[in-house]
Computed example of a mutant assay.
Amino acid sequence: MDGFTVIAEPTRRAIVDRLRVAESDVGALVRALELSQSLVSKHLRVLRDAGVVEAQIVGKRRVYRLSADPLPDVVAWVQPYLRVWTASFDRLDEALDAEDSDGT
């Protein structure tokens, strides 16, 4: 499954957003997202199979975290847009700096 299909589903995006902030076990995700354990587990399985998250056994818990390179196809697609936006913001920053230095 490609990265776009993975993140197209809102529950999976919510899980990825939570794991971006901190690793978590299923129980914490269930409480935070107010979803059933079976639904969260189903989505975690999809995310794990797609290489977006990794699981580690800690005692009796399975703790999930984002993989080091979770959505390479999405990042590759977005990268050209980031370059364009960054260049535009750099030009805006330069224009604002020039305006400030002119005293206007």
Rank of each mutant, 00 (worst) to 15 (best):
V75T: 11
T86C: 14
F89H: 15
S88G: 13
V58A: 13
S101Q: 08
V6T: 13
R18H: 08
S38Q: 09
V74C: 06
M1N: 07
S88E: 14
Y64V: 01
R48P: 00
Q37H: 13
D73G: 08
S41Y: 08
R48A: 09
D73T: 10
E54G: 05
L35A: 11
Q79N: 11
R83P: 04
V16N: 01
Q56R: 14
S24V: 01
L29Q: 02
S41L: 14
D93G: 12
L71S: 03
R62S: 11
V16P: 02
W77A: 14
L71P: 07
T11Q: 05
R12P: 03
D69E: 14
L29E: 02
D49T: 08
V75Y: 01
A28M: 12
L47K: 04
R65H: 01
G103L: 04
D90N: 11
A95L: 15
P10T: 09
P72Q: 07
A95Q: 14
P72Y: 03
R48T: 10
S67V: 05
A50V: 06
S101C: 07
S24E: 00
V6E: 02
D25R: 07
A8S: 13
E99S: 15
A14T: 09
P10C: 05
A8L: 03
D2M: 08
V53S: 02
V52H: 04
V63R: 05
A68L: 05
D100A: 15
R13F: 09
D90H: 07
V74R: 08
E54N: 07
A22V: 04
V6N: 05
R65S: 11
D2T: 10
L29S: 03
D93Y: 09
D97Y: 14
A22K: 09
A68W: 03
R20A: 10
V63M: 02
V84H: 10
L44E: 00
A28T: 11
S101I: 13
L29M: 04
S24Y: 00
G59M: 06
R65I: 03
A28K: 11
T5M: 08
V74T: 06
L66I: 00
